[in-house]
Amino acid sequence: MHARHRKIGIAIGAVAVLVAGLLAGQVGASAESAKPPATVKGLKILLTNDDSVQGTKADGSDGQGLYELRKALCAAGADVVVIGPWGQQSGQGGRITTDRATGLTVTPASVPETYAGDCADAGAGGAVYGVCNSNMTCTTGSPSASPSDTVRIGIQNFLPATYWPAGPDLVLSGINWGQNAGIGVFHSGTTSAAVTAHEFGRPAIAFSEQFDLIPCAVSGVNCPTYTPGAAFAVTLIGKLRGAGLLKPSTLLNVNFPYVGADEKQGKPALNVLGNGDMLDMTWNGATTTEGATYSLGIPSDRKSTNKNADTTALDANRISIVAMTGDWSRTPSKKLTALVKALR
């Protein structure tokens, strides 16, 4: 077996053991003294999202999940700094700013009153910043930086110059308003922020919470509540730390299920990305050879057909954990190697 494949297999196997421990309620209790503490206490965490840092909308779609996660982490003893998009950036994928004329400005953001004192005792005081695509302080209407922008500027520039000279121990993205599962993750700003942190050698986890789409989007009901998900996130991070799994190779995508009033939440599951999409976008409009204008339709649910898919786990009300540590440096197949050799 290729050495890199073997290492990835070991890493995924370790995550599988961790999830099994979550099901049993413990991880390696007999060897606890030989491991790092299984808590988030003292961890320096960069927190971002793709919903913005505003946190003002009643349905929680513009950053409430971020503030609930910040609250839970600080209550458990973590040191958290938020560096997130100034405005809504859902579906922006891994977009990064390359415009040399217009830079990125990091601006202190107003913390919603409900969450104002949550991190008062933490080392960084729970500082919250928004990032805009501007050469001036971000204000109402400023174009927002992308989630990937915020992680890059946070790790490379802002945090080493301000709070943490060595940067963050861990990067978290979320909790997102709505699930990020299946092949749709490739367009997700939430998951792309975590992938960007992974580029810089930081352990990273993306967190999202499923919603009942139409009732939430139209009537503001059956939306994510975030509190149970934030509590689980703190537990998961502590277990990862205690198992020695908060290392550069760690990149996880975690989804919390929407559980209806007459339903029960299932156990956590280690999954793979589904080959379907729970929020498959559709566009509608009349088409002629002169061109066309299309409007965004209602997202549809395209079922996954692969085994052990995260989308299937969410449909069963299970918390889905996906280790996004695929090997993009795999040795090419013999057939492809021969084909390229034969090219003239």
Rank of each mutant, 00 (worst) to 15 (best):
H2S: 14
H5S: 11
A11L: 03
I12T: 09
G13Q: 01
Q26R: 13
A29R: 02
A31G: 08
S33Y: 12
P37R: 07
A38M: 08
K41R: 14
G42K: 10
G42C: 08
I45A: 01
L47A: 02
Q54R: 12
Q54C: 08
Q54V: 11
T56Q: 13
T56P: 10
D59K: 13
G65I: 03
A75E: 01
W86Q: 03
S90A: 14
G91H: 01
G91V: 04
Q92A: 12
G103W: 04
L104K: 01
T107W: 01
T107Y: 02
Y115S: 07
G123R: 08
G123I: 06
G125M: 03
V131R: 12
V131H: 12
T137N: 05
T137Q: 06
T137I: 02
C138W: 01
T140Y: 12
S142K: 07
P143N: 06
A145Q: 05
S146G: 05
V151I: 00
V151T: 04
N157C: 09
F158E: 09
A161W: 09
Y163Q: 12
P165F: 05
A166F: 13
D169E: 04
S173M: 00
Q179N: 09
N180M: 12
G182D: 03
G182Y: 09
I183H: 09
V195F: 14
H198Q: 12
E199D: 15
F200L: 14
F200G: 08
A204E: 03
P215L: 12
V218L: 07
V218G: 04
N222C: 07
T225G: 00
Y226C: 01
T227Y: 07
G229D: 13
A231K: 15
F232P: 08
V234C: 00
G238H: 12
K239Q: 15
L240Y: 10
A243Q: 10
G244T: 05
T250C: 06
T250A: 11
V254A: 11
N255T: 15
F256T: 05
F256R: 11
P257W: 01
Y258M: 09
V259C: 03
V259T: 06
Q265L: 11
Q265I: 14
K267Q: 14
K267C: 06
P268A: 00
P268S: 00
P268E: 04
A269N: 11
L270Y: 02
G274Y: 06
N275C: 07
D277G: 03
W283T: 04
A286S: 13
T289C: 11
T293S: 13
Y294D: 07
G297Q: 06
S300E: 15
N306F: 13
A313W: 09
L314H: 00
D315A: 15
T325L: 14
G326W: 11
W328C: 05
K334G: 11
V340I: 02
K341V: 01
L343I: 02
